[in-house]
């Protein structure tokens, strides 16, 4: 009890110090040092209308490669940990007709919407990560609506493996052609149109596929499909 009280006091005190420290720069007036350049030059330098996207994919693109790797790692570790788990199959009733019919019509629309989000990542809010998650949510809907719905493991592995590999490959092409990893070797294109942003749309499409297949893979592992197929 005393230990707990002490811990609470300690965390509260540290939080207060942190608050004082953060308040040294009041809310609403961010210190833009590096971002200044992104805002001023980003549009012409990268050709991407959405500056957040150009920060994510180009300026801090190496982080994003790492981020994709983290998700891949989680999917891998999760599949390794869950393998051999005795999933209990409880008898469930089929979902209602309304549910299954609606899902069947919604599913392609959800996939289309996900694809729209990641293809337009350099023009509108969104991009590879949200797009991929939307796609995975479509698969989740199908898992819920149909007891017998299956996704083949091979398809997921091929999609995520190749998408990841091509992502690194694009980076290496930049290294080879322009001397630095993930350099944009394509022209910025016509601003504000779909074909702009150099390698940004390319990478976001790959990320979309990769995230979509990884999230679906995570759902699939947690559903326990390997054991009682």
């Amino acid at each position: 009890m005393i230990k707990k009280a002490f811990l609470i006091l300690l965390v509260a005190f540290t939080g207060y110090v942190f608050f004082v420290a953060a308040s040294a720069r009041p809310f609403g007036s961010p210190r833009v040092v590096v971002s200044k350049r992104y805002l001023e030059k980003g549009l012409n330098e990268t050709g991407s209308q959405n500056i957040v996207t150009s920060v994510v994919v180009l300026y801090r693109g190496f982080d994003t490669l790492g981020e994709v790797t983290v998700l891949f790692l989680a999917a891998t570790a999760l599949a390794a940990l869950i393998s051999g788990f005795p999933f209990e199959r409880k008898e469930r009733t089929e979902p209602s007709l309304v549910m299954s019919t609606a899902s069947r019509y919604l599913f392609p629309l959800i996939l289309l919407f996900g694809a729209y989000i990641f293809v337009h990542g350099h023009l509108t809010p969104g991009g590879g990560f949200p797009g991929g998650v939307v796609i995975a949510s479509g698969f989740l809907l199908m898992f819920l609506a149909f007891r017998k719905y299956r996704v083949s493991e091979g398809g997921l592995i091929v999609t995520e493996g190749l998408a990841g590999f091509f992502y690194v490959l694009i980076g290496l092409i930049g290294l080879y052609l322009l001397g630095s990893f993930l350099a944009s070797f394509l022209p910025p294109g016509r601003l504000h149109t779909l074909l702009s942003g150099g390698i940004i749309p390319l990478i976001y499409i790959l990320i979309g596929f990769k995230v979509g297949s990884e999230m679906t893979g995570i759902l699939r592992s947690l559903k326990g499909e390997d054991e009682n197929g």
């Binding site: 961010p30 833009v32 590096v34 971002s35 992104y38 805002l39 980003g42 500056i51 957040v52 920060v55 994510v56 801090r60 982080d63 994003t64 790492g66 981020e67 983290v70 998700l71 790692l73 989680a74 990560f129």
Partner: peptide, 19 residues
């Protein structure tokens, strides 16, 4: 325009959190 960098960082942090 708000600062774009924290938004990019949050995107990364969210994905890591999910993982």
């Amino acid at each position: 325009a708000v600062d774009p960098v924290p938004q990019a960082l949050v995107l990364t942090a969210i994905v890591i959190g999910v993982a």
